[in-house]
Design a protein around this nucleic acid. Structure first.
Lengths: 328, 328
DNA sequence: TTGAAAGCGCTAACAC
DNA sequence: GTGTTAGCGCTTTCAA
């Protein structure tokens, strides 16, 4: 089909292109019968307004850039679903960008983001580099960051208070005299992991003790499973906490290898869980981070920013600790 | 930062905008010293070419539309990773669209795709509606379809021959006299499921038998697990095949409830598996569909189409049957 | 090697 | 109510 433009429609309907533009954009001043003429011309020619030209004329693209780390879809999938559902409502398009771990790569992403003149950006990235945000800010792009509590005035952040969540839970164990708590390192989620440790530290301090259960996985081990299989053979814990459910599952498998019974001999809790947690046995107790909401809220805040409405620049989403089969 | 355009750069460097354009696009006719002047002006002003304006002038956007069903990221995540990696190489942007199951919704997606003037479209959708493809084709958008063997001349399809895979495997069992084979319905993947059944039918026919193991999940059951828990109590199988690993896991759980030992009393095979299969015990034997490659190849074919290079319009990716703990 | 100017398809002030 | 026209920021012929 030949490209059909607003001129073609105008000619066909015997009106000026301004009138066609009015009809397209629902400007309610066009007389009913001319509107009908225009509409049937549009129908007849199969005309679809060129969003690129509109973007150029209006100085806005109605698309927003989404930045997530590569290979993270198992968790971010739900975030994206939430985000897309809201984006659909407000007619925003989503430009997807994934980042690998190299710094040059993330610079490239920012570069393309700027060039593509998106109306706003949503970032989910645990190891978020300040320079990225700074660069983006130079170009006045509204930014929403997920899962990273930021304090910039012009950036909104949507997150769950993981520190508090872990604090609460660990306190509970300490209260019952169970103080052999471990937190597994998560190299892909260093910030989240740091919050977990902070929470544990605070809890231990409150009980006059010191937390020393941070399990860093030595670099010679390729998986946390490989490490834990050895480690659990020699060290006994009351509770192991992991960020992702996948790590929790690894822990369960490692425990099984060592004839450690979950939850009788060892309890396990993770922070985020995916649908697979509902299939695994035993099912893992978790904080049920509302990942769908994380995306949906982020998108909603961004639309507010774009309309210059007032917006909260820090939105804390609540979690709900959900005990399952991996804890007593 | 004030919007800086090509005019600003031109003024700063004391050249015409045509020259700036040449520098930006690496047209090698600009004298070294003027190029240097332009480049330092660009640097100084922090100029980034407006991709929207370029898109309008060049009649191409260097972005491609990706359509996937909502909530499918656990599997499509890998596809997206493959796709993004290749897109990055060729400097294409990805516009992400998800479809829910309503027909009006998919029409909307096609509408926005056309309007956004993407250079091409990649579709992963099991229940792909022909009318969608037809609509897209009217506007001459190059299309690549994943996991759906299509025969249109101007559409490329990238897929794995699931029918053959299942045929091979089932034949193997029949050869050993094991003929109680079941295939679980997958409502989200009807086309894939149909191919599985076709494969089983063909295998049975080759052995002079008739396949009757298609397990449709009655609508009163919300999950396959719920259904199988009952069903496996009364019916014995040698082999249960599922499309997704998640269904295979459900089957294992349902078997466990009925004291059926996997793989001793019942073997289980799935077609696609995600990283979770590496964590679950027993691990499930599968065909190891190369989902990353599916995305990467799809994107690569599309770039060929866009360059008007010759391209295969049907690309079959190979699978590798990988026996694990769920089979003997 | 460089510049002038038309055009890409649309919107929005302004005029009628 | 409708048309005219000047942009939006870039590319690309054509001349110089």
């Amino acid at each position: 089909m030949k490209r059909v433009t607003i001129y073609d429609v105008a000619r066909e309907a015997n009106v000026s292109l301004a009138t066609v533009s009015r009809v397209i954009n629902g400007v309610n001043v066009v007389r009913k019968d001319t509107r009908d003429r225009v509409e049937s011309a549009i129908e007849m020619l199969g005309y679809k307004p060129n969003a690129i030209a509109q973007g150029l004329a209006l100085q806005k693209t109605t698309t927003i850039g989404l930045i997530i780390p590569e290979a993270s879809f198992i968790f971010t999938g739900n975030i994206i679903n939430g985000l897309m559902d809201v984006a659909r409502i407000y007619k925003y398009n989503i430009m997807l960008h994934t980042t690998t771990e190299t710094i040059s790569d993330i610079k490239d992403v920012v570069e393309t983001i700027i060039k593509s003149r998106v109306d706003g950006v949503i970032i989910y990235n645990d190891q978020l580099d300040d320079s990225v945000v700074a660069e983006l800010q130079k170009y006045d792009v509204p930014i929403v960051v997920m899962n990273n509590k930021l304090t910039h005035k012009h950036i909104a952040s949507v997150y769950v208070d993981i520190e508090e969540a872990v604090y609460e839970r660990v306190s509970e164990y300490l209260k019952n005299g169970l103080d052999k708590v471990a937190i597994i390192e998560d190299r892909k989620n260093t910030t989240a992991c740091k919050q977990m440790i902070d929470g544990a530290n605070r809890a231990y301090k409150a009980f006059g003790k010191e937390f020393d259960g941070y399990l860093q996985i030595p670099h010679e081990f390729h998986t946390s499973y490989a490490f834990l299989k050895d480690h659990l053979a020699t060290t006994k814990y009351d509770l192991v906490m992991a960020y992702r459910d996948s790590q929790a599952i690894s822990t369960i498998n490692a425990a099984k290898e060592n004839n450690i019974k979950v939850p009788d001999d060892l309890e396990i809790i993770c922070v985020i869980d995916t649908k697979y947690n509902s299939m695994v046995r035993p099912q893992i107790s978790s904080f049920s981070i509302p990942s769908y909401d994380l995306g949906a809220v982020a998108m909603r805040v961004l639309t507010k920013m774009l309309k210059n409405d007032h917006f909260e620049n820090q939105i804390e989403l609540s979690y709900l600790y959900t005990p399952r089969q991996s804890t007593k």
